[in-house]
């Protein structure tokens, strides 16, 4: 499907680094949005602060590029005041899980009818590569120069525990699956959370010997494990490798929803 008319071509080229995964995430998201048959007048994009939050600035719909961590709270206002609008957020691991963590769990608890696409690149990209709540133990960043010692958040588990109706996780290697997941999220009433484990060759890669995007993609290919397989291994009492990236659909359910147009 052609969704060039959804781009603000007069703003290109984007500010994203060469090899950044955000472009893939935007493409997959727009592909899913257009496959819903929605017009640009029906959709509002929101974001907070960070690399991924710049995404709405390149999309030709109404959009709110808000303050750091707060996009979900702004989105709650948009959606409740005008339920006709389909509300989609771009966010990142720092924006969503650190400064915006409280809004995240409460938006999931309310199960407000919007879709959150989280670019989880394990790092603060915009400010130059600092550690985030999802930086893996041992990974280096400019604020974890000796390797991170904190236990990272599993954002999909968090969204599920807090009550989101739809949760899935993919990577930019899995573009078809990612597009389908965003579409499933758009179709599911309530809060849909799509986590995209994404390469950041500049911020994360430079500090962790992963500057080469091909290598990064190879990791996504090799270490990704479908949730079904991980579940089977656990059931059989076999270990899931600690560096596995468990991907797939985690939950699709119909808890009561806030903000659904009546």
């Amino acid at each position: 499907m052609n969704f060039l008319e959804w781009y603000r071509v007069d703003r290109l080229p984007s500010i994203f680094c060469a090899g950044c995964g955000i472009g893939t995430v935007i493409n997959c998201t727009l592909s899913a949005v257009t496959s819903m048959g929605w017009r640009r007048n029906d959709v509002v994009f929101l974001s907070g602060i960070g690399c991924s939050s710049r995404a709405p600035g390149y999309i030709r719909t109404d959009s709110l590029h808000t303050t750091h961590g707060r996009a979900l709270a702004f989105a709650t206002g948009v959606k409740l005041a005008e339920p006709r609008l389909n509300v989609i957020l771009f966010t990142g691991d720092g924006d969503l899980a650190a400064i915006g963590g409280n809004h995240f769990i409460h938006a999931c608890r309310r199960n407000i009818d919007l879709t959150v696409v989280c670019v989880n690149n394990y790092i603060y990209g915009m400010t130059g590569g600092q550690g985030s709540p999802t930086t893996p133990v041992g990974a280096r960043s400019s604020t974890t120069p000796y390797g991170s010692t904190e236990t990272p958040f599993d954002l999909s588990e968090l969204a599920m525990a807090a009550g989101a109706n739809y949760v899935s996780r993919w990577t930019p290697y899995h573009t078809k699956e990612l597009t389908a997941a965003v579409k499933a999220g758009l179709e599911t009433p309530g809060l849909s959370f799509i986590e995209v484990m994404t390469q950041c060759p500049t911020g994360y890669g430079r500090a962790n010997r992963l500057r080469d995007v091909k290598e990064f993609m190879e990791i996504f290919r090799m270490r990704s494990m479908l949730k079904q397989k991980a579940d089977r291994l656990l059931k059989e009492g076999k270990p899931v490798p600690p560096d596995a990236i468990v991907i797939g659909e985690f939950v699709r359910r119909s808890r009561p929803v806030m903000g659904r147009r009546g």
């Binding site: 929101l46 707060r70 709270a73 702004f74 989105a75 206002g77 409740l80 005041a81 409460h106």
Partner: peptide, 26 residues
């Protein structure tokens, strides 16, 4: 109209601003 008790005051004013862009007095 819509009343919502948010999780804190940061979220409260954020929701008000979001609602205002849809044309509501908030």
């Amino acid at each position: 109209g819509t009343f919502i008790q948010m999780e804190d005051e940061i979220a409260s004013i954020a929701a008000v601003i979001g609602a205002s862009w849809t044309g509501k007095r908030a």
